[in-house]
Write a protein that binds this DNA or RNA. Structure first.
Lengths: 242, 242
DNA sequence: CGCATCTTTGAACTGGTTCAAGATCCGTGG
DNA sequence: CCACGGATCTTGAACCAGTTCAAAGATGCG
């Protein structure tokens, strides 16, 4: 909320060009020309695990790019339960609806400690008008959101509990380390449309059958072939955004 | 594919302004100014029930606005089964991905005889560049797609079979007539992630319990309060897009 | 009329839920 | 440093919604 123009936040977009977050970052392919157009502040922002980025209905004046961590977008059900509608990984864009709506339409909560960039919609709107490149980027982002939404439905709401958990493992596996940080069982339930008990049991079974190896609390090393087999896909790619 | 500039299709966008499809139509709030920018053909297009609008992977050179009927967007599963990812009602936009991708990413098939407008992406891109109004519209449409995708997940992939079928009834009920045209049981299954048998049984049960009244083959009159009660919502609105 | 397709219904089976009791983890304060 | 208490995770057993397999009606079309 507070628009502190103080030293806490790195100003300007200059840094964006060298952003560690590869192709994904919203501003990745802008020219110097483009950057000259903007002098509005882009804030660095950290959200701790379990922290709320925003709630549904909050007035929306910024969109966010996720640099590291993991954010879940949630709808609360009439009965008080929750359903995870999508999970955003580093490089993803969060809260695009700010560009067309007064308020956010989900609850955005961190599943892991996360770092983000908060970009005021004024910046986007200006660039959107004046830089064809960014304009295309924005449309792309939106497309991305639809694609991910559809995939989420396919992957996480279709098939047996075993298949879903396996797909979630693949989705959450870091290509670099080959490790998979699972969220709490309750979150898993809300993502897959199953109960926490079933989530727990299924994971236990995977461990017994050697589909995944225990590494640390809620951290596992999936055996790729095994997991894929259980997930019911043999060739499809999953995980790599884009 | 064939760009017949012959008499078969109404040219120009002049008609769009008076389009029967109310607020929803993509070009609803353009000015005369805007319209003057375009002279490219907008084709009328009819697709019969079970007809294919496009397949996943088809080269995408147009987007579509649905004037009447009902279109399902489908993903085929590795095992040959299908999953309905979204259903578009009159006023909705189909194939937006054409604006950012070479190809369509779903299969689009008519659940009922449907009438659409095919709009070449060149038209959209031109207007998008030159008319801020349409530009906003396009973003809005994209937002709409995400919202509908999320809702679809919530409504059709959450809760018991009874709840899902009830929600589908509400979704498909025409406010004008109060009637609900249900698609084939197999389609219902693919929409709700249940088997055709369960779909059939559930509908039969609804009939017995007087939740819906039989009108004609696959046409029912839902008792609104009853259905809502079963759907597990008492106050929420469902159905009215926007 | 006759064949193909779709829908309904039945009955056995099963994956997942539910409810309940332990086990494990973790922060807190003594 | 350890012991306590709350939260989360695991496991068990009974139950039930939904699946599966199979067969009998409908419906529509040439």
């Amino acid at each position: 909320m507070s628009n502190n123009a103080n030293s806490l936040f790195r100003p300007d977009l200059a840094r964006c060009r060298n952003c560690g977050v590869r192709q994904f970052a919203l501003f990745n392919n802008l020219t110097d020309e483009d950057f000259k157009l903007v002098h509005l502040p882009v804030e660095d922002l950290a959200v701790a695990k379990r922290g709320i980025l925003y709630n549904a209905g909050d007035t929306a004046q910024s969109i966010f790019t996720l640099r590291s961590g993991l954010i879940k977008l949630v709808h609360y059900l009439p009965d008080g339960g929750q359903r995870v509608v999508r999970v955003v990984r580093p490089g993803g864009t969060i809260g695009l609806e700010a560009l067309v709506s007064e308020t956010f339409s989900h609850h955005a909560e961190a599943l892991q400690d996360s770092e983000l960039c908060r970009i005021p919609i004024a910046v986007i709107e200006k660039l959107d008008r004046e830089s064809p490149r960014l304009h295309k980027q924005v449309l792309n982002r939106w497309h991305q959101a639809v694609v991910e939404s559809d995939n989420w439905l396919m992957q996480m709401s279709t098939g047996t509990a075993r298949e879903r958990v396996a797909r979630l493992c693949l989705f959450l596996t870091d290509q670099e380390t080959g490790l998979c940080h699972l969220p709490g069982r309750e979150d898993i339930g809300a993502m897959l449309g199953i109960t926490t008990e079933t989530a727990s049991r299924t994971i236990a079974e995977f461990r017994r059958r050697g589909v995944i190896e225990f590494v640390a609390r809620n951290v596992f090393r999936p055996l790729p072939d095994q997991v894929r087999a259980v997930a019911g896909l043999e060739d499809e790619e999953l995980g790599a955004a884009e």
